[in-house]
Amino acid sequence: MDKYVVLKKSDFNGFIKSLSKTQKVMAPVAKGNNNYAFEEVSSGEEISISHIPTILPPKKYFMPQRETILAFSKKEHEWKPILEKEPLVVFGIHTCDLEGIQLLNKVFTTPPQDTNYINRMNDITTIGLECNDYCDEYASCCVMNNHLPNSGYDLFFTELSNDFMVHILTEKGEKITGGTPLFSEAQSAHHKALEQLRSKKKELFKDEVVVQNNELKELFARTVHSAVWEDIQNRCVACGNCTNVCPTCYCFDIKDDINLDLNTGVRIRSWDSCQNETFAKVAGGENFREERGSRQRHRYMRKFNYSIGKFNKYFCTGCGRCSRTCMAKINLKETINSLAGEKK
């Protein structure tokens, strides 16, 4: 399916209003201080069409921060799996985050498959939104090849002067545009405007680091013992912000929470972070990654080195969240450039 329709900007508010009456719609809203978050909306007016990447990526709908996965009873020795899900439309996903979702889909659909994730994934409709401008100095979406749409959505919106140009990629998407008279067929003028926008983007979006995409793996493979990691060791405070905001971090912890009857209880899965002090701590008190620098290096290797071996993909989408949120201003682009600046 490869079809384009248009929605008048003046009809956008009504479109979201009517859509939110049929299912829950999540979209980026302004939280102040140039921060944004995906939240439930019931009208287009609440949505920030122009936004830098949200505090947390839309990952939170596919893999919630906290999720009950099991209910058990000790005495009866019984347990039953729990699936928490609801149909959702997530509107306004930038191309970097669409890539993040596709990477997570790959992780959780590769055996051993994650049933809860897959069930939720199938129940979520994703509506992408094109970045017409470069968001800020932290992004590196261009070198990661995620500044233009590369699939991973049901519908994809591009803002033109009077309309939204909408690419329909799936049947799920077509159901939405076909369910209302607000969408009309795209005319050649629309296609031309889209083409112009995309070629303007080629000027606006440039590789953000001194190395090319295909050199990144080799760069990280040869700099395991670099002094750059020592510098980061001295700066990182291990607050875990970088991993918590990452669209592709998927490490989790599982804990049992017993009820007050001390018999029944639930098993809860929650996000974990390799940056936390206790992440690599084992029985007996040994900590395999005691140094904050080695934890940071591990994070980078998971994005640019190990993931190539396992999934043949970089696990950095270039969204820039880790640099944007870092209290110590550890900056991904600077790290890459510093590593590249070292003698081979």
Partner: peptide, 21 residues
């Protein structure tokens, strides 16, 4: 008792960082 910073939970709750304010 958790031994990571309050920031970890704060970020999961998607609060705007106080330092940004």
């Amino acid at each position: 008792v958790p031994d990571d910073a309050v920031c970890t939970e704060c970020k999961l709750n998607e609060n705007v960082c106080m330092y940004e304010k």
